[in-house]
Structures are given as structure tokens and as C-alpha cells.
Computed example of a mutant assay.
Amino acid sequence: MPAEWAAHAATWMSWPADDELWFGHLEPVRAEFAELVRTVARFEPVQLLVRDSESEQDARARLHGANVAYHHVPLDDVWLRDNGPIFVRRGEGREADLAFVNWRFNAWGGKFESDHDDRVPEYVAQALGMAHWDRPEVLEGGGIEVNGLGLGLTTRSCFLTDTRNPGLSEEGYAALLAETLGIRKLLWLDGGLENDHTDGHIDTITRFVDETTVVTSVESDPADPNHAVMARNLAALREMTDTAGEPLRVVELPLPANRLDGAEGRLPPTYANFYIGNGFVAVPQYGDPHDGPALDVLRPLFPGREVIGLSSRAIIEGGGSFHCVTQQQPVGLTWTGE
């Protein structure tokens, strides 16, 4: 599995369509989605899945002139990082063979409807004419981070739940991800953010920004329930090493200063849910005092890329942000299995 900063052929996304899922806030969600899609499309093509004619008409009206291709696909929701394919590559650069792994998706342990979203990778395979591997295990893309050199990061709170792959141990996951994604060393953190319905995806708290550097979320208020969990993660990361046995460089990234609450309790806003593309990094912003300082932390870590802050105040009502709604397709030659 290539690192996210490797060159992309395209970004795949799904257009929001269900006002009930967005607690009656579909209009501001679509406005923020449109800004994100337009930003990504400035740098690379966007392959946009739309549920129905209304969704396509709405998206086309908002995205007029953007580098976007539209695909009619039955959808439950928009979190394509988790229900979409995970691309893998054999070789390097534009001549590499490209395929993907199709994991089962059960909406984070059966929390929501997922039958349509579980079939999205099969559509992508058809659209690209691409070979792929169907796996019986449940796994979401937001649950795994890679540096592109065989090092992976995940959380126990997510992978070890009994609603995903009962009985699969840390050692079992290590073997599985070595076989399927080329991860030779899998690092484990304990948990994620309070009230994260993904059970603590790694992409909401800790991210690789290059082959040897991670940013990790920290909470400065000792009274906040996130404080202790993030502090344990930080301490663990400082003891971890890469595949060569060298210590990781660990950079602290603040969580938003203000608590956000939604229709179902506390929301999990985070700046770690950024998306890295060709020449840019899109960073969620929440109208929070820490918006600017978070950008100040991230900009020096991405030389040669434009680090862009975009509003995610409406999108976070659904429980995720920019990384959760995107899936990169690396450059490479489509492998047909022949």
C-alpha cells in the first residue's frame, strides 16, 4: 500500500444525499463538500459517486467547471475511506501494476445500514477494469495508516472489537496486513477520541506525514476525557521505531479548543483528519481558536505542498471529516489479473 503522499491518479469521493443522516443539515454539508471537491479537483481528477439524479444535478450545479467525473452508484453514506477500495501497487511510479483489496464493510460494527456501501469496491473495479482481491475480513481504510515502506499504525480500540473480526488477535492482524498490504511492522495505539463511532480510527488522531514522522493529537485540558488517551498514545509513539529500528519523529498536533456537540452527543473534531493530495493538503477547520495553530504545525511538515484550511463544521456532524470522505487512487497501470 503506497503512502498517501505518493502521486495520485485520482481521488474517489461520494456525494452526500440523505438529509436524515445529516440531521436536517444537508445543505451546509453539501456546501462544504463542494468546496472540498473543488479544491481537490484543482490538483487532480475527482471520481464522484452519486446516489441518484438529484444528487448528480446538485453536484454538477455546485461543481460546474471542476475536473470531476460522475458515477451513478447506490450509496448508503459518504465515508468512502472506509467502504471504498484500498489500492495496492507492485513496483514504482506510473509503470507499476495497480490493483486493490476489497474488504467487507459493516458500518463500524453494524452501527448503520451498509449493504450498498459494501458493494462500492465492485463498482470501482468495473469502472477501472481492474483486478482486485475480495477478502472475508471487515476492515476500514480509516483504521490503518502506512508510511509506504512497510510500517503501519492502528488502534486496539477499533481493530480488536468483537463486531469486526471476532477472534483475530494483534498477531493475526499483523500477518493479514503483511499478506494483503505489505505491512511488515504493525504498531498499535490504545484508543481514539471520545464518542468516535468508528471505535477510534487511527486517521482521526495520528498520521504519517513522511516516512519517519508522525503527527499525533494531544489534549491540553486534564479534565477532558481525551487527555489521558492522547497522552498514552503520545508516550507510546515516543517509544516506537520504524522497520529499520530507528525512533519515529513525533510532532504534537492540538485538538480543537472548544467542545462540539451534535444530535448524538459529543462530536470528534480533529485536525489529524487531513487529506494529502498532489501538491496540497486539505485540513479541516471548525471555527475554533486552534484552527490557525494547527495549520502552523502542519505547514512546515509538507514542503512543496499547499496546506489549505477548509471548513468542516457541518461535515463533522456526521462523525468524520476530509480524510474519511476521500480515497486516493495511486498512479500505476491498471492490473487486469492476466
Rank of each mutant, 00 (worst) to 15 (best):
A3Y: 11
E4N: 07
A7T: 14
W12D: 15
G24L: 10
E32R: 15
A34Q: 01
A34H: 09
E35A: 15
V40P: 02
V40G: 00
R42V: 08
F43V: 09
P45N: 10
L49F: 13
R51M: 03
E54K: 10
S55D: 07
E56D: 05
D58M: 07
Y70M: 05
D77N: 08
V78Q: 06
L80N: 07
D82R: 00
P85V: 02
G93W: 08
A99L: 12
D115I: 13
D118T: 03
R119D: 14
R119K: 14
E122M: 09
E122Q: 15
V124L: 13
Q126K: 05
L128M: 10
W133E: 10
D134L: 11
V138M: 07
G141N: 13
N147W: 03
G148V: 08
G150N: 04
T155Q: 04
N165A: 11
L168N: 04
L168W: 04
A174N: 05
L176I: 04
L181G: 00
I183H: 04
G200T: 01
H201T: 01
D203W: 06
T204E: 14
T204H: 07
I205R: 01
I205H: 07
R207I: 09
E211H: 05
T213M: 08
T213K: 01
V215F: 10
E219A: 06
D221Y: 12
A223L: 15
N226M: 07
A228E: 14
A228G: 08
V229H: 03
M230P: 05
A231Y: 03
L234R: 10
P247G: 08
R249Y: 03
R259A: 14
R259Q: 09
L260S: 02
P268M: 11
P269A: 06
N273D: 09
F274S: 02
V281E: 06
G287R: 15
D291I: 03
R305W: 15
E306R: 12
V307N: 08
L310G: 12
L310K: 01
S311E: 04
S311I: 01
A314P: 00
E317K: 12
E317I: 06
T326R: 05
Q329R: 15
G332W: 11
